[in-house]
Simulated assay, not measured.
Amino acid sequence: MAMEIYQQEEDKSLIANSMDEVENVSFRECMVSFHTKSIYNVLSEMVRHYLGFVTSYDSNYIMQKAKEFANQNFDSFAHKEIPTCFTEILEKPMKKKEQIKLLKGANLTYDQLGALFAQAENKGYSFSHYHYQGDPSSVNKDELPKFIHVKEDGTVEYYGKTTLTEGQMKQVVEQADVLIARILDNDEHWHCFLQTFKGLKGQEAGLQGSQPHLHYISDSFGISRNSLVEMLRKGEYPSTPVHIPLKENEEKVE
């Protein structure tokens, strides 16, 4: 896990965590480990600010509590009910046309997406995570501050020195070329759930491009897993007719 702590004010820090690439691992172990480290970083900063920068504290105890919270968080979504179409594609060998037909009109909440990965592990699937981020095209990379965040109200929060205006920094974030892919593997079959930064913001072309969504690809789509990963590492991916809307709120499962 990559982690940065940006000291903004004497009593305020900004913590940025990002998940490293992993291949063929346990989804539960991977997520619990990631969230444990993330929670530990937050708790440590809170304790450090509360007790003072020179005061020592029990880091082992904080790590123990962070792991407890991480396990509780995982269990809170792991057993959620998911649409039966996703269970079927994990359990039954299918041709591309069958998968496309089955997933037509399907959607997931964010919790259900996590539950899908958790339940896939129980069916013998391993988990892989790939991440691509291209360099910004509108500005020189050396001009960027260390951290940029566009808030919900449209204002920009950043850390580090930069010559860019707030408008330029906002443009960098909004036009970011980011690709995240998670692949579930068993001995014979794999399923890829892919998202782009623009897709998550509902800024892609196409019928469902105006809402946050995932792209679905599988071994039945005529591409090898190795070829898919090679494309992902270049920030590319094959076209797919399966777009799965991502919902914020829990909905009744059909």
Rank of each mutant, 00 (worst) to 15 (best):
A2W: 14
E4H: 14
E4K: 15
Q8S: 12
E9A: 15
K12N: 09
K12G: 05
L14P: 00
L14N: 03
V22I: 13
N24V: 01
N24E: 14
V25F: 02
V25R: 10
V25I: 09
F27M: 06
M31R: 14
F34L: 13
T36V: 03
K37S: 10
S38C: 11
I39R: 11
Y40N: 11
E45R: 09
Y50F: 13
V54D: 15
T55P: 02
T55F: 04
N60W: 04
E68R: 09
N71G: 02
F74I: 08
S76V: 13
H79P: 00
E81F: 07
E81H: 10
I82Q: 12
I82E: 08
I82T: 07
F86M: 11
E88C: 04
P93W: 07
K95S: 11
K97I: 08
I100K: 11
L103R: 09
K104V: 00
A106M: 13
T109A: 07
T109L: 05
D111M: 07
L113R: 05
A118H: 04
Q119A: 11
N122M: 15
Y125P: 00
P136A: 06
V139Y: 06
D142E: 14
I148A: 02
V150Q: 09
E152Q: 13
D153Y: 07
Y158N: 02
G160F: 06
G160V: 04
T162F: 06
E166W: 00
E166A: 12
Q168V: 01
Q168I: 01
Q171S: 12
D177Y: 03
V178M: 12
V178T: 13
L179M: 06
R182M: 12
L184N: 04
E188K: 14
F193R: 03
Q195I: 05
T196V: 08
G199R: 04
G202I: 10
Q203W: 08
G206Y: 09
G206R: 10
S210D: 14
Q211V: 15
L214E: 03
H215C: 07
Y216T: 05
I217S: 02
S218N: 06
S220T: 13
S220E: 08
G222I: 11
R225V: 01
S227K: 15
V229K: 06
M231P: 01
L232V: 08
K234D: 07
Y237H: 13
T240R: 04
T240L: 08
P241L: 02
H243V: 04
P245F: 05
E250A: 13
V253E: 10
V253L: 10
E254R: 12
